Simulated scan of single mutants.
Amino acid sequence: MQHSKTTETEIDFRAEFDTLRDQVNELLKSLKNKTEATASSLGENVESKMEHYQDQAGQKLHDAYAAGNAGLNDVGEHIRKNPVASMLIAFGVGYAIFKVLGQGK
């Protein structure tokens, strides 16, 4: 009789162990799926933000280029309207730089 009781206990223990092992495997599969989904979502989010920032950087570069062009056009127009004054200013600035750098001693 002792032998059959031990056998029933062993069978019950093995059945519970198998059930527990299956539950752990299901939990690991579920965790893996959630991790993959989260990583995929995070990757898409990062990619979307990178595209957004690239677009913004491109727009800022375009704006800076346009502002620089406008500034150059304004300077060019001023020089065309006042060529003598512009040459005197350029000469004065060049002379001041020459003196500051110590070349005129």
Rank of each mutant, 00 (worst) to 15 (best):
Q2F: 04
S4C: 05
K5A: 14
K5G: 06
K5E: 15
T6S: 12
E8C: 04
T9G: 06
T9R: 15
E10I: 06
E10Y: 07
I11H: 03
D12E: 14
F13I: 06
F13C: 10
F13D: 11
R14I: 05
R14D: 08
R14H: 04
E16S: 07
E16V: 03
D18V: 09
D18S: 11
L20D: 08
R21N: 15
D22F: 03
D22G: 08
D22C: 02
Q23H: 06
V24R: 04
N25D: 15
E26W: 01
E26M: 03
L27A: 13
L27C: 05
L28Y: 07
K29H: 05
K29G: 05
K29F: 02
K29R: 10
S30W: 08
L31P: 01
K34S: 07
K34F: 05
T35R: 10
E36W: 02
E36T: 10
T38N: 07
T38W: 04
S41V: 02
G43L: 01
E44K: 11
N45G: 08
V46K: 08
V46M: 06
S48V: 07
S48N: 13
K49C: 02
K49A: 07
K49H: 06
M50Q: 14
M50D: 12
E51P: 01
E51D: 13
Q54M: 03
Q54V: 02
Q56V: 14
Q59V: 01
K60Q: 13
L61D: 14
A64Y: 12
Y65G: 09
A67R: 13
A67Y: 04
A67L: 10
N69C: 05
A70E: 11
L72H: 06
L72T: 05
V75G: 01
E77C: 03
E77K: 13
H78M: 09
H78L: 09
H78W: 11
H78D: 05
R80C: 00
R80T: 02
K81W: 00
N82R: 00
P83L: 03
V84F: 08
V84W: 06
A85P: 03
S86G: 00
I89G: 02
A90V: 05
F91A: 15
G92C: 07
V93N: 01
G94K: 05
Y95L: 15
A96V: 04
I97S: 01
I97N: 00
K99Y: 11
G102P: 01
G102M: 02
G104Y: 13
K105Y: 05
